[in-house]
Design a protein around this nucleic acid. Structure first.
Lengths: 211, 211
DNA sequence: AAATGAATTAAACAAATGTTTAAAAATTAT
DNA sequence: ATAATTTTTAAACATTTGTTTAATTCATTT
């Protein structure tokens, strides 16, 4: 059933996807109602199934696209041949804080969904290779051999970096309460972290910082 | 309707709560069916409403108890007058890695729920006071004044510590895939972090580690 | 302009789901 | 032992919710 009016089609199709994206990302699959998607998209309920067959099929599209968006550019940043390990960290941190500032619900959405359906979803992204065999990882190991960095299991390093990077966005409502921060103040803190996380994470593994 | 057979009563009531706890914590409120709770608890469906009035009331009890469990002992650890800042970090890290090892679903459960209902839930826990006015925070600021630690916004420090501590459990399925780890290997890594996180987090803020 | 096909709509359907009811069973009190 | 109360059960109920149907509107083609 290919349409003959692609603009209008894609317009409604895109309206549905956008509404679905917002609702699925903030409320999850089960708490999101087909009727809420339709209302938010400003379309008739039946159009949802007309365009996407089922709520579940629509959801699969959204989660996949969301993960693709999240991992977009990661491989490039990890394998940029012209940058040092520390430069890569700067780049990655800045990139992801920017992304998460604009899409703060993505991490909990992705991680919750992976938790419910690990094999299915993880099989579609070869993160193991992308990460562990990257130039970034090679440079870390190199730095450890050179005694520039303390001996650390690269996986621990990844956990620390991702934890510092992603956790504040997952826990933002709690952190805002604890720090008595409004939205702007919180975002200002997140922006500070673009520069600070690289300093902290590198300090945490540097062997002899008193050069 | 107070019961006259407290042991048996609490037994079924507790069976329901335990089943509800497991299901709510792993699947969330919306994806958990009353019938699944009843089946898992081995009781008749109607007993759920007999004991707890509604699925929602049962859920409120579970989320509250879960949060209480999670914050249990935190205040004491933060305000132990006889321990240093670094000792407190050791204690807190070990305590929470132990807790999270046994209850890996708690963080995503709590953080998701807070995200849906921030005011309601956060108002019931005075985390701001517990944390920001703790001896732990005082000791951090003291260390900064003494130039022992770099100037860091205490909130940033909290984010880093909690990120390192909690994030790996939230992202465990992904990390297992990336690191090709089975359950035991993952838990071994988490156990290593009991000793390592204090080292890393302190290195990240120490001013002159070349003593 | 008529005809064809796509897009949209209102309504209905069927299954799932939280909740209630009324009777039976089990327990406790008299 | 009997009566009263609590606990448990099977069934029904009322909504919600994902999906489908059939008719209508809209756009495109001939």
């Amino acid at each position: 059933m290919k349409s003959k009016s692609p603009e209008i089609d894609q317009s409604t199709e895109e309206k549905i996807k956008q509404a679905a994206r917002e609702l699925f990302q903030t409320k999850g699959f089960s708490a999101t109602r087909s009727r809420d998607i339709a209302t938010k998209a400003g379309i008739n309920l039946a159009l949802l199934n007309y365009y996407f067959r089922s709520k579940e099929k629509l959801f699969n599209i959204i989660i996949l696209e969301t993960m693709q968006e999240f991992f977009l550019h990661l491989s490039e940043m990890l394998n940029d041949g012209s940058s040092s390990f520390e430069e890569k960290i700067n780049k990655i941190v800045a990139n992801y804080i920017e992304l998460l500032t604009n899409n703060p619900d993505i991490p909990i959405f992705i991680l919750s969904e992976i938790r419910q359906n690990p094999e299915e979803l993880l099989s579609k992204f070869k993160m193991k290779e992308a990460l562990m065999r990257s130039n970034f990882m090679f440079q870390l190991k190199e730095g450890i051999e050179r005694k520039e960095y303390i001996p650390i299991n690269p996986l621990h390093f990844i956990m620390n970096l991702l934890g510092m990077l992603i956790f504040p966005f997952i826990a933002s409502p709690m952190l805002k309460k604890i720090g008595e921060l409004n939205k702007e103040e919180f975002l200002k803190l997140m922006n500070e972290r673009k520069n600070s996380i690289p300093v902290w994470i590198l300090n945490s593994i540097k062997t002899n910082p008193s050069k």
